[in-house]
Write a protein that binds this DNA or RNA. Sequence first.
DNA 1: TCAGAATTCTATTAATCTATAGAAATATTT
DNA 2: AAATATTTCTATAGATTAATAGAATTCTGA
Lengths: 205, 205
Amino acid sequence: MKPEKTESRRYQKQKLAAIRAAASVFSEKGFHGASTADVAARLGIKQGSLYYYFDSKEEALEEVCLYGLRQYVENMDAIAEGEENFQARLRAVVTNHLGRYREKNEALKVHNDERLYLPPERRVRLKQLGTHYRERLEDIVETGKAEAAVRDEIDSHFMAQSIIGMCNGLGEIIVRDPEADVFELARKCTDLLLHGTAPYHIQGD
Amino acid sequence: MKPEKTESRRYQKQKLAAIRAAASVFSEKGFHGASTADVAARLGIKQGSLYYYFDSKEEALEEVCLYGLRQYVENMDAIAEGEENFQARLRAVVTNHLGRYREKNEALKVHNDERLYLPPERRVRLKQLGTHYRERLEDIVETGKAEAAVRDEIDSHFMAQSIIGMCNGLGEIIVRDPEADVFELARKCTDLLLHGTAPYHIQGD
DNA sequence: TCAGAATTCTATTAATCTATAGAAATATTT
DNA sequence: AAATATTTCTATAGATTAATAGAATTCTGA
């Protein structure tokens, strides 16, 4: 079956290729719409051989989702640990988030669209990553308060979730319109988050 | 097969029940994870009998999605046609949107999660409804400009998509935490959209 | 080059599921 | 109550698919 301790270089390489093939096929046809034969074909092997790398189709989905999220979360960590001011970091976060919709990141798309088909026990690690992402963003909001760039009464959990949602919404524009300028969108988005819609001067409540 | 002209009262009633049963089952198991037998069982009839109401499983999915979106869009129309000022309408939009996550609207959930499994020709009517929703929201933003409640440089397409995304993001909080106060969230969300994160007084660029 | 290990292939099992056709049952109308 | 129309059931065809086992092949190191 599977190599026990060895995990040879070749095995690891091919396993990564298998994850990518699965990401590609799942993102095209959906998890249930895609067969293990489709995935194997994309990889250039036969259906049965795929089980050398995955114990089940579900395990393949889990690995694809994890693979898609990881890099994305790593970027967030780098931003959160950086030394820039709130405005710059917010922009970096938004740009990182929106950028993912342009470079077609199939594994991340699979995570977004198909992860619900995983049974709960296969979703725990994904949830951990997602929570980690949001918590880093909450940290950034808190530093914004320390800098007096963010009003005190703003709840950082609420704020982080709002930012994530807004970016996902704008992602649709990027997907719909291949001409859309990601950096310009990121700029507008950051501006909206910082200043809102209302004219700058006075505003009542 | 299907009744041609009659469309008897009973038929219509049972068809609606079938759509609801499909919504319930699809939202639980996903479109591909659910079988027509599951849907029929929820409705209290046998698998084969379901085809009296739908030509195919895909048609059932399409009808569920349309059913889920329609009411939601109708509410938006009512808000857009109303006479209130920008701030009040924005709040109404956000409240309508967030409210949907609390009353468990299974059909709308199916629309959100499963619509991608429809072939493009079955998605056109859904897209029309979605576009209509966003366009009404763009209208509201434009009236906001006329009222000087919204800065001129704000792009209404961008803005509408941002609002939709933010609401969807906050929806996750509502789903995660059954205690979350929808109206309080709607208030915070409206406030953030109007004023941004930054303290009110001056802000540079 | 040979031996053993790692990788892929073939063949098959067993289960599942959509969709259809025609019979049976139920409701409606005359 | 008989006749007709509507709704549901039974049974099945036909196709697909995930997963397994063991054989065949390819790779690697001595």
